[in-house]
Write a protein that binds this DNA or RNA. Structure first.
Lengths: 148, 148
DNA sequence: CTCCATGCAAATCTTTTGCAATCCT
DNA sequence: AGGATTGCAAAAGATTTGCATGGAG
């Protein structure tokens, strides 16, 4: 049974390791993560810490959280980025509905292995795998017909 | 042996089907596709038709090409979008080097099947599958060490 | 002729940045 | 103290849009 480190500790030790300060703003942003759904936008995160923390700092902290391995940026085909927490989560892919924008997750061990093999052959050091399907979800199809 | 339709015909019949005009600008953009690498940016495409065609029209046409199924928007983790031709190509995933930005392709039948299964279970109508790995390519590792 | 399409420039919108003031350690 | 961090507002940059003019059918 593998035990995952507490995100707060991960972040604190990341900051220390990088010689960065532990500030109110950074802790507020980290804390806000717990109150957001799995997938969120920068603006939603800001909503939770605003106006205590500025948008600029939210973006700056989001970058640190990514470097610390606690958050990952994900693209759902919209103009702005989405993010997801990476702690307490299994590897997964996303099924993104182009109509309603909702996202379903699914396990990806098998697919992931294929990407790993390709990387290996290429001598590519693989840091992250993204597996996503785009289409129309069951609900939208029922409501509006198969359409595009 | 399956024969793929000529992109020009695909585009023309798409335009007709949608009641859209066949214009010089649209044909110029379609033609320019052949002179671009597999992956390109909107600005590169514009470079080939500029100033005959305006940037606005390039974006507008790019959208039509996507709807016609000739082009696909792909995200490589940069601020701006990339595009790739979809005709004359096998299914493939991308290995994106976070250092140099170069992209390698690899076959994805197996992984794709897994996504299809997940979609099936979800009653999700799958339109497109994206499989990408991010990391550091062999060249960059040799040049600068394993690093991040 | 009648819409459709285009160019131009302005508008959007998210994310980034410069800089002076403020906070950590 | 002294560098790191923040807020603010301005900048940046890709893409989109309004509108008057020109083009396709």
């Amino acid at each position: 049974m593998e035990r995952e480190a507490d995100p707060r500790e991960v972040f604190l030790s990341f900051l220390q390791r990088e010689g960065l300060n532990v500030t109110r703003s950074r802790l507020a942003v980290l804390e806000a993560l717990a109150h957001l759904p799995k997938h969120f936008e920068a603006a939603e995160l800001w909503g939770l810490v605003r106006p205590r923390v500025s948008a600029a700092t939210v973006y700056r902290t989001l970058e640190l959280l990514q470097r610390a391995g606690l958050v990952r940026k994900v693209e759902f085909g919209e103009a702005h980025a989405h993010y997801e927490r990476t702690f307490g989560r299994e590897d997964h892919g996303h099924l993104v509905c182009r109509r309603c924008g909702r996202v379903w997750e699914f396990p990806t061990e098998a697919s992931r292995r294929a990407v790993e093999e390709a990387a290996q052959e290429q001598g590519f050091f693989l840091k992250e795998v993204v597996i996503q399907g785009y289409g129309v979800c069951a609900g939208c199809r029922a409501r509006e017909g198969p359409g595009v």
